[in-house]
Design a binder for these strands. Structure first.
Lengths: 349, 349
DNA sequence: GTGAAAGCGCTAACAA
DNA sequence: TTGTTAGCGCTTTCAC
C-alpha cells in the first residue's frame, strides 16, 4: 500500500505538499498536478487510520439503533446513509437490541474509535448515558427517542399528537372499547403515544361518549405494555381478548407489535374492521394484509436524513443552541377502522 | 481522555507495561493490579485508532450487503454480529444497494480503514473486484453469492437444489404451466435457482408430464428476470399474467419479489393455491399472508454466523486451503401450493 | 508556497 | 519481568 511518503518521493516533493494537495492547501498548480499523477500511478489512497489518529477525529459516524430487523429503523438508516454521502463520512450501523449494556459497549467503541459523531435511538429514556461523549466533545444527535437530560440535538416525531389522532379516529369510527398496546415504559415514544391515547380517552369518558370498563381504572384497564416486537404484540392482544369485557378496537404503538396483534386476532377468529386496528407506523408489506390497515405514518427516512444533517453541522463546528426538530406524522385512513360489526353496535347500549 | 502514558505515570510503571497488562503480556500480579486500578481511576480505555495504526490492522470487520431493507440480509447481519461478539470485533454494516460503484467505494474504505476483514454478498458475480483486498492480504469471505474467480472462502446455500425441489413440488401438486421469476442475471443465486427450475422442467417436458407452451422456447417462455425487489416482482408477475397462455403457478426466486408477485396476483383476481406460489426464502411476516406460503427456507442467520466464523479464523491466521461451505435449504410445504383450481384441471387436456 | 520536524497513542523489538 | 526506543502514516506548526 502506497503511503504519502512514497507519493512524495515519486513526485519529487515533500510529504507535507502531498498532504496539502489532498486537503486543499495552497500548492502551485504545476506541482499539484505532478503529485496527483504520482498518486494515481501508485494507486495511493490516504490511510484513514493515520488521518484519524493525527486529527483526533475519524470520518465515521456511528448509528445506534435498537432493532435492525424493524423496517422502520432500516428506513431511518437509509436516510442517515444518504445524508452522510454528501460529506463522505461513512456510517457504522450498531444494533443495540434494546439492550442497555450492548448500547453502553457501542458508545465506548464510538469513543475509542474516535468517531466523528453519533446518532442514537436510545435504548432507554433514563439509563442511556451520553455524558462520556459530551465530555469528549463528540457531537451526538438523538433520533426517534429522546433520552432524558441529555444535552444533545434531537429529531423526533409528534408521538403524542399521533396517538391522539389515532384514538380520535377510532372513536369517530364507532368503536367504544378502545385498547392500547404500547411499548416499554422506559421508552419515550411508548409513553408519548400512550399519553395521546389517554388524553383523548379521558375526554371521551368525561363526555360520556364512551362507557367505562366494568372494573379497574378506565385509563389503564385496556392498556398493555409490550416490547415493540411481534411476539410481544401477539401476547398482549391475546391477553386483551381474554378479558371478561374485551375491547372492540386497538391502537398499537408500533408496526411489529401490530403484526403480532393481527395474528392474535386471527387466532381468535376476529377480523378488522369488525375489530378495529390502528397501527402507529407502517406495517411492512402492508399491501398483503387484508383488510388494508389504517396507520399513523411515520417519516422514517426523513428522520434519519435530518438527524444526519444536524450531526454533520455539529461536526462542521456549528455552535447554535441545541435544537429539537419534530417531524409530523399523518393519519392514513384505510379499511381496518371502518367501524365495528353491526351486532356489536346492537349489543352496546 | 486518558492515554496509556497517563496510566503508566499514575501507576509508576512504563507505558509498555500498561500495554502488556491489557494485551496479556507477562507482568507481576502486583504491578498488574496497580495498573488496572490506575486505569480504572482514570477511566482509561485504549485508543483503538492508535492500536490499528500501530498493528496495521483494525478491530472492525466490514459486512457488505446489497439490500439492508431485505429481512434476509438483516437476519444474516445478526448472525455475523453474534459471531463477531466472541472475539470482540465490531461489525460495520455497509449497504451497497446492488450498485457496483457503491460497493467499490466501500471496499476502498475497508482498505483505508485497515479493517480486519470483510464479508461480502457481492453485487455482481463478475464485476465485483476483490483483488485489491487480496493484494493487501485482507481476509475476505463471500456470503450468499459467489463472485467468480475470487480466491476467497465462501458460505452459500444449495440454490440449485432448492430450485429443483421447488419446481418438483409444484409439478407434484398438479400445476402444469410453471413460471419462474428470478433475479438479475449477473447474480449467482438468480442463475442457480433458475438452473434448478430448468433442469426439472426439461425432464418433465421430455417425459411429457408437462405440455410445452404454444410459442417460444419452453424453458424460457415463462421465465422473467427482475431485480430482487418488490416492485420488480409485481411487474414480472403482471407481465406473466398478461400472456396469451398464462402460467398456472410461479416459482419466485426471492422473498421480496414474492411479495410483489402476490400483489399482482391479487390485482388480477387470482389466489393461491388456485394459482400456485412458491417462494425461495421466507417472506417476512408470512403469518399474515393468506393462504400460508410454501417456501424454500433459507438459513439466513447461520449463513452470517458461519461466514463470520470463517473470517475470524482467517484473521487469526489460519492457513487452510480455501473453503466453500454450502448450507442446506429445506422445502417447507404450506397452503399456497395445494394444487390448481378444479376448473383448471378440467381445462387442461 | 514549501520543507523539516514533531507528535497523535500505541505496540514490538531489543536491552537490561 | 521491565523499560527504552523507534515508528505505524499522517497533519500541522514553524521557519524559510
Amino acid at each position: 500500500m502506497a503511503t504519502i511518503t512514497d507519493v512524495a518521493r515519486a513526485a519529487g516533493v515533500s510529504p507535507a505538499t502531498v498532504s496539502r494537495v489532498f486537503n486543499g492547501g495552497r500548492v502551485t498548480p504545476e506541482r499539484a498536478e505532478r503529485v496527483r499523477r504520482a498518486a494515481a500511478d501508485l494507486g495511493f489512497s490516504p490511510n484513514r487510520v493515520a488521518q484519524s489518529l493525527r486529527k483526533q477525529r475519524g470520518s465515521v459516524i456511528g448509528l445506534l439503533i435498537p432493532d435492525i430487523e424493524n423496517p422502520f429503523f432500516t428506513a431511518l438508516a437509509r436516510g442517515v446513509e444518504d445524508a452522510a454521502q454528501q460529506t463522505n463520512l461513512s456510517v457504522v450501523l450498531c444494533n443495540t437490541d434494546e439492550d442497555i449494556e450492548k448500547e453502553r459497549r457501542y458508545l465506548g467503541i464510538a469513543l475509542a474509535e474516535q468517531m466523528a459523531g453519533v446518532i442514537v435511538a436510545a435504548a432507554s429514556r433514563d439509563r442511556t448515558d451520553l455524558s462520556a461523549l459530551a465530555a469528549r466533545g463528540m457531537p451526538v444527535v438523538a433520533v426517534d427517542r429522546r433520552p432524558r437530560n441529555a444535552p444533545v440535538d434531537a429529531v423526533l416525531v409528534d408521538n403524542q399528537h399521533g396517538g391522539e389522532a389515532a384514538t380520535e379516529h377510532l372513536l369517530a369510527g364507532g368503536y367504544r372499547r378502545i385498547a392500547c398496546i404500547t411499548g416499554p415504559a422506559a421508552t419515550s415514544t411508548s409513553e408519548e403515544r400512550l399519553a395521546g391515547y389517554r388524553d383523548v380517552l379521558r375526554t371521551a369518558l368525561h363526555d360520556g361518549r364512551v362507557p367505562a370498563p366494568p372494573t379497574g381504572d378506565p385509563l389503564t384497564a385496556w392498556v398493555r405494555h409490550a416490547d415493540f416486537k411481534v411476539e410481544g404484540g401477539r401476547a398482549a392482544m391475546a391477553d386483551l381478548l381474554a378479558m371478561e369485557t374485551p375491547p372492540d378496537a386497538v391502537f398499537v404503538a408500533n408496526n411489529l407489535m401490530t403484526v403480532g396483534a393481527l395474528t392474535a386476532l386471527r387466532e381468535a377468529g376476529q377480523t378488522p374492521p369488525g375489530f378495529g386496528v390502528l397501527s402507529f407506523g407502517d406495517v411492512p408489506w402492508a399491501a398483503l394484509v387484508h383488510p388494508s390497515l389504517t396507520t399513523v405514518q411515520q417519516p422514517s427516512y426523513d428522520l434519519g436524513f435530518t438527524a444526519a444533517t444536524l450531526l454533520q453541522e455539529r461536526i462542521g463546528g456549528t455552535n447554535t443552541p441545541l435544537r429539537t426538530v419534530v417531524l409530523r406524522t399523518a393519519l392514513k385512513i384505510r379499511a381496518s377502522t371502518a367501524g365495528p360489526a353491526p351486532q356489536d353496535l346492537a349489543a352496546s347500549p
